[in-house]
C-alpha cells in the first residue's frame, strides 16, 4: 500500500536542490557585482590581540540576547502564573484585570508593545532602556505562559479538586499540595520552549536602542556594507542557538512524557 521510496535518492535530490538554490543566490549576487568579503566575518566573532582574546560584536550581541532572555523568562513565568491564577479565582477584580491584560497583549503587535515600554513606561517609571526591553518581552511572553499554566491546571482531573475540597483544604492549599504538583511536570516542557520564543522575539528589541545580536547586525551592515554576509551569519547563529535549544526541549518533553503519562 505504502510505496517505498529510496530515501537516499531523495536525500541526494534534496542536497542538489539546496546546492542549486545557493548557486543561484551566489550567481545573482555576482551579477550585482557584489563583493563577497567572508574573510572579514571571523573577526566579528573574536580577535586575538597580543595573545589576548577579545570578543567581537557578534558574540557581545549574543551575550546581551542571552542576558535579556535570562531576565525575561522568570518574569514571564511569574506574570503568567499570576494571570492564570487570577483568571481562575472567584475575585471579580482579579479576573477582570487578568482578562484585560491578556486581551490587550494579544491584540497589539509586540513591536508596538516594545515602543510603548521604551517610550512611555521607561520615562514614567524612570527605568533604563535595558529593563524596559526586558519588561516588554516579559509582559508579552507572560500571555503565552499564562496559557500554558491555564491548560496545565485544567488538565488536572476534576476529581482531584473535589477530593481536596472534601478533606477540607482551602484554595491556596489545594493549589499548593494537590493541583500544582500534578500540573507543573506537564507544564515544564512548554515553559522551557518559551526560551526559544524569547530568544527569537528579543530580535524585535533591535528596533530600539538595545545592543542585542540583531542590533549588532544592523550596525555592522551600516558600517561595513556586507549585508549578505552579516545577515546570513546572524541568521545562522540564531538557527544554531534556537535549533539546538529546540532539540533539547524536545528531548526533555519526551522524558517527561515517558515518566508521567500512564
Amino acid at each position: 500500500m505504502v510505496k517505498r521510496h529510496r530515501w537516499w535518492l531523495d536525500t541526494v535530490q534534496f542536497i542538489a536542490l539546496v546546492a542549486g538554490l545557493i548557486y543561484i543566490a551566489v550567481l545573482g549576487a555576482e551579477q550585482l557585482n557584489y563583493n563577497w568579503q567572508w574573510y572579514r566575518v571571523p573577526k566579528l566573532f573574536w580577535r586575538v590581540i597580543d595573545g589576548e582574546l577579545i570578543w567581537g560584536p557578534l558574540i557581545d550581541g549574543l551575550l546581551v540576547t542571552f542576558e535579556i532572555t535570562a531576565w525575561a523568562l522568570p518574569l514571564a513565568i511569574l506574570i503568567g502564573l499570576t494571570t492564570a491564577l487570577l483568571r481562575r479565582s472567584n475575585s471579580f477584580a482579579g479576573r477582570w484585570v487578568a482578562t484585560a491584560y491578556l486581551e490587550i497583549i494579544r491584540s497589539t503587535p509586540i513591536l508596538v508593545q516594545v515602543y510603548i515600554f521604551y517610550f512611555i513606561i521607561a520615562p514614567i517609571f524612570g527605568i533604563q532602556a535595558f529593563w524596559a526591553c526586558v519588561l516588554a518581552l516579559a509582559f508579552h511572553e507572560g500571555s503565552f505562559t499564562a496559557e500554558i499554566f491555564r491548560s496545565g491546571i485544567e488538565s488536572v482531573a476534576k476529581g482531584q479538586w473535589e477530593a481536596s475540597d472534601s478533606i477540607g483544604l482551602n484554595r491556596v492549599d489545594t493549589y499548593r499540595y494537590i493541583v500544582l504538583p500534578q500540573a507543573v511536570p506537564l507544564m515544564l516542557p512548554p515553559l522551557t520552549g518559551q526560551v526559544v520564543t524569547l530568544i527569537k522575539h528579543s530580535s524585535i528589541l533591535s528596533a530600539v536602542a538595545i545592543f542585542d545580536l540583531t542590533t549588532m547586525a544592523l550596525d555592522l551592515v551600516a558600517e561595513t556594507f556586507m549585508a549578505f554576509e552579516i545577515w546570513l551569519t546572524v541568521g545562522a547563529i540564531y538557527l544554531v542557538v534556537t535549533g539546538s535549544l529546540s532539540l533539547l526541549v524536545g528531548l526533555f518533553e519526551q522524558r517527561i512524557r515517558a515518566r508521567y503519562r500512564r
Binding site: K200, L213, T214, W231, G235, L239, T242
Partner: peptide, 22 residues
C-alpha cells in the same frame, strides 16, 4: 524549521534582501 528557528527580524531582512534583489 528554518523559519521557526531563525529570529523574525533577521529572517525578514535576509528574505527582503534576497527576494528583493534576486
Amino acid at each position: 524549521e528554518l523559519v521557526r528557528n531563525v529570529a523574525p527580524v533577521p529572517f525578514l531582512f535576509i528574505m527582503f534582501f534576497f527576494v528583493g534583489n534576486q
